[in-house]
């Protein structure tokens, strides 16, 4: 079970997330297409992807990578504590890539009686190219 995190224990600058996903497989993209309902052939059909300019074929759904980062987020903080999660899609991810997800606490504050922690998150491939970057807010219990 994901351990509860307490507001008092979290400090700005803390590394909170580390997750390595991959290497990405084409089969995962087919599974994600079916699960999510995003059947854009850019993600599942190499011939189509090449015809629209992707020389190596299919690329991952951006939302799949956002989902992987979401996995890392709720591996760290219980799902019920998550208040907001957003990303910017910065680059395309290809099958065979290994994606490293990391996160750092950037702010903590009491707002409307809630203990809010904000963390920056980023997913990069083995070349260090950013695939998605973003942040999330979690409302954490206090120890008192």
């Amino acid at each position: 079970m994901i351990q509860e995190k307490y507001f008092e224990d979290i400090n700005v600058g803390d590394t909170v997330i580390e997750l390595v996903k991959g290497p990405l497989q084409k089969l995962q993209l087919v599974m994600y297409a079916g699960a999510s309902g995003d059947f854009n052939p850019l993600h599942t059909d190499d011939d189509f992807a090449k015809a629209v300019g992707m020389k190596d074929g299919v690329i991952a759904h951006g939302m799949f990578i956002m989902g992987c980062v979401g996995q890392a987020v709720t591996d760290w903080v219980p799902k019920k504590r998550l208040k907001r999660y957003g990303v910017r899609f910065a680059g395309m991810s290809k099958p065979g890539s290994t994606i490293t997800i990391s996160g750092t606490v950037t702010d903590k504050r009491v707002s409307d009686g809630e203990n809010i922690v904000t963390c920056a998150v980023v997913a990069k491939d083995e070349q260090g190219d950013v695939k998605v970057s973003g942040s999330f807010d979690a409302a954490l219990p206090g120890k008192a």
Binding site: Q28, M31, Y32, F64, G70, Q71, T74
Partner: peptide, 13 residues
């Protein structure tokens, strides 16, 4: 369950 598994997220919740 299908959506979590497609992501490769095996969090039992």
């Amino acid at each position: 369950r299908e959506f979590a598994k497609a992501i490769g997220d095996f969090n039992p919740i």
